[in-house]
């Protein structure tokens, strides 16, 4: 019988395969375990980030122009809808300010320190986005120098888009919620149902419908499509009250024992030019 490969080639291929799988699995494990990458990797990433910032100037300009043209087409209708909403917002804003003041006063009276709703924000600009099949990550232009830490939530537009997954000195990576690796989207959320809240965590992301999934919900509280979802603050690192999205549909799980809730994320995960990192005042300590 004629051999397809020589036995030496087969052995080399097997060894190469084992080494590569080990490398991928090992560095994945290591990246999860450590807060900052090793010095060489950090140094290389800082250098690459600086380089990328320069190149980003013309490409971002092209991208912005393309977006503006796209936006121009539906401006008229959007403008009408937004005008209707804006009065509502003004009213809410005034109310929010009053309630915030009251909250501050009451906290002072109770001698409460920072709570889960207290957080500072650090704004950053996206300098790059990984052109990869999996692990959609953004590179933003703030790093450990600006006080960022691994695990902090990142917001864009109207809602949460992901968490910091790696911090270098002058830039950081953001793992998007659409990435199903464990540290990207497992955060504690609460659904504001009609009859009381339902707490839980995001368990998955369905890339085929572009929705977050909150699995294993056993609460009997009624939840319907359109209910608002926000972070609950349980767990400490992510402050409470960050907007996540709206309930899209509620289904039973495979065994009919618990509910699966599909959540439509509020933020647009496609077009992210600037982000805001929420630094929790108690989580950071």
């Amino acid at each position: 019988m004629r051999k397809l490969f020589s036995s030496r080639a087969v052995v080399t291929m097997i060894i190469a395969f084992i080494v590569i799988v080990g490398l991928i699995a090992g560095s994945n494990w290591w990246a999860k375990r450590t807060n900052t990458p090793p010095f060489i990797q950090r140094f290389g990433n800082d250098l690459a980030g600086g380089f990328s910032r320069v190149i980003a100037v013309p490409t971002t300009a092209i991208g912005r122009t393309a977006n503006s043209i796209g936006n121009l087409l539906n401006t008229f209708e959007e403008n009408q809808a937004l005008k209707a909403k804006i009065d509502e917002f003004a009213q809410d804003k005034v109310r929010l300010q009053t309630v915030e003041e009251e909250n501050k006063e009451l906290k002072k009276q109770l001698k409460l320190e920072a709570t889960l709703t207290d957080y500072k924000t650090v704004s950053a600009v996206t300098i790059s986005r990984s052109p990869t099949t999996w692990q959609s990550q953004l590179v933003i232009n703030k790093g450990s120098k600006s006080g960022l830490k691994k695990g902090m939530p990142v917001l864009a537009g109207s809602g949460i888009i992901g968490r910091i997954s790696e911090v270098n000195t002058t830039n950081a990576k953001v793992a998007l919620v659409s990435d199903t690796s464990e540290d990207a989207n497992r955060f504690a959320i609460t659904i504001k149902g009609g009859k009381g809240d339902v707490n839980g965590i995001v368990t998955d992301f369905d890339r085929e419908s572009n929705q977050l999934i909150m699995g294993q919900v056993t609460s009997d509280n009624e939840i319907k499509a359109g209910d608002l979802v926000e972070t609950s603050g349980l767990g400490g690192v992510i402050p409470s009250g960050l907007y996540v999205g709206k309930v899209a549909k509620v289904t039973k799980d495979d065994y009919g024992l618990s509910k699966r809730i599909y959540i439509e994320p509020a933020a647009d995960l496609g077009n992210i030019t600037t982000v805001v990192v929420a630094v929790s005042e108690i989580g950071a300590q």
Partner: peptide, 9 residues
């Protein structure tokens, strides 16, 4: 990477 970010939409 810059293209992916700029043309993300």
């Amino acid at each position: 990477g810059d293209l992916m970010s700029a043309m993300g939409a």
